[in-house]
Simulated assay, not measured.
Amino acid sequence: MSQELTDLDLKKLNSKKGLIALLSKEPLSIEKALRYVDYQKKLKKLQIELIRMQTWAIKNNERIIVVFQGRDAAGKGGAIRRVTERINPRHMRIVALPKPTEDENSQWYFQRYIEQLPKAGEMVFFDRSWYNRAVVEPVNNFCTQEEYKVFMNQVNDFERMILESGIHLVKIYMSISKKEQAKRFADIKSDPLKQWKMTKLDERAQDLWDQYTEYKNAMFEKTNTKNSPWKIIRANRKTEARAEVITHILKSIPYDKNLEI
């Protein structure tokens, strides 16, 4: 770090968070440590606002959906954890649906997602959602082109019905570069505590990068509507992305910012 440290910088570094940030990663970086301390301070303020927003939702029987999509290793799970770690767990759910069962495959595609929609006073966070059929499924041949076309023809109407029923819908896409994805995959493979995260789909993601891009662009073109827009979060830097995710959710929900908590 070229500039001299200010008294405020030294105070930050001498705090518990500052010392942890400074000593927990190699190589030692004062600049990164200061950035992390600032992030933690900002995160706390944002999480307090999330509690205020949830309190408003519970009090007014509001229903909120936040959809997280993005490339493999883009940081969806980490962002969801930061959003949900301080709010009341009795009034929120994280939904990460597994592969459809045989019965679910015979149903209308949206049916199993309808069953996960929020009740009064509840927030539901989708770690991937119905938008799997817009990108992941066609790229990996998990659906036919006809099924893909039917989905793309129906999805805007499906979301219009959600919105018209009074549910708040926020759509977030976590975006990373091909180089950053490769780096994160390498980190996952080398860490015994993270290796379980690596799936067969992840193994193919780099090779199928261009196909994912093609379907992703088609998804944005069709479903980035005025009433239900996408928010693209540049997620190469995890801490900045997580703060931006929370900021966007707070801006998207018309909660009472003066509500006492």
Rank of each mutant, 00 (worst) to 15 (best):
E203G: 01
E214F: 08
K222W: 05
N217W: 05
T199A: 08
K216S: 14
Y212G: 08
M198C: 09
Y215G: 06
A218F: 00
R204H: 04
Q195S: 09
K197G: 09
W209F: 05
L201F: 11
D210L: 06
Q195C: 09
Q206P: 00
T213S: 14
R204S: 13
R204L: 15
D210N: 10
K200A: 13
M198K: 04
Q206E: 13
E221N: 10
A205D: 09
M219A: 05
K197L: 09
E214P: 00
R204P: 03
T223E: 13
Q206K: 01
A205Q: 07
L201S: 12
D210P: 00
T213A: 14
L208P: 04
T199E: 07
T223L: 11
W209T: 02
N217L: 15
M219D: 06
N217S: 13
E203H: 02
K197V: 01
N217R: 08
K200F: 09
F220Y: 14
K197P: 06
N224A: 14
K197S: 06
M198V: 08
T225E: 14
Y215I: 05
S228E: 15
T213E: 14
Q211A: 05
D207R: 01
T223A: 15
N224V: 08
D210F: 03
W209C: 04
D210K: 05
E203Q: 12
K200L: 13
F220R: 03
E214Y: 05
Q206I: 13
T199L: 08
K200I: 03
Q206H: 07
D207C: 00
K197A: 11
D202F: 04
T213N: 13
S228Q: 11
W209M: 09
T225W: 13
Q195E: 12
D210M: 05
W196N: 07
L208I: 00
A205C: 11
E221I: 00
F220P: 04
W196K: 02
D210E: 15
Y212P: 10
K226W: 07
K216G: 05
Q211L: 10
N227F: 09
M198A: 15
S228F: 13
E214V: 04
T223C: 15
T225G: 13
R204T: 08
Q195P: 00
M219S: 05
S228A: 15
N224G: 06
Q206M: 09
E203M: 11
A205L: 02
W196D: 07
D207H: 11
W209Y: 07
Q206Y: 02
K197H: 06
T213P: 02
K197R: 08
E214K: 02
A205P: 01
E203W: 00
